[in-house]
Amino acid sequence: MKKYQLGEFEEIVLLTVGVLYNEAYGVAIKQEIENRLKRKVSVGAMQSALRRMEKKGFIDSRLGEVNKLRGGKPKRYFTITAYGRDALRHSQDVRTSLWNDIPKVALDI
């Protein structure tokens, strides 16, 4: 049974939400990912990942202050929940154990 349903892109978004702690809202997350991964992220893909994870319970959100720059629309800040943290840990553990089990020879290319 799959315990945590966490896609690759979702994982990156989730990690970024963690990195930006308390400052994680749409544009910030998008720019952070773009800076770190050196790739374009569409608002659609990112928002859809965020809402999916919110539904699954990996993140929480709260509405923030209204800003003139944003045409009077509030920001929505995301934070990782305990369940989200477990999902990230699980994902990291799986990877680590995989890393550990690779015979040295295999990477000695």
């Binding site: 809202y25 749409g26 544009v27 998008k30 608002v43 928002q47 809402r51 509405l63 800003n67 720059l69 944003r70 045409g71 629309k73 509030p74 920001k75 929505r76």
Partner: peptide, 16 residues
């Protein structure tokens, strides 16, 4: 439910 903040994001990006 999602409209205001996403639209805000879009505005902000547009302004940028």
């Amino acid at each position: 439910d999602y409209y205001p903040d996403i639209q805000g994001d879009l505005e902000e990006l547009y302004a940028g």
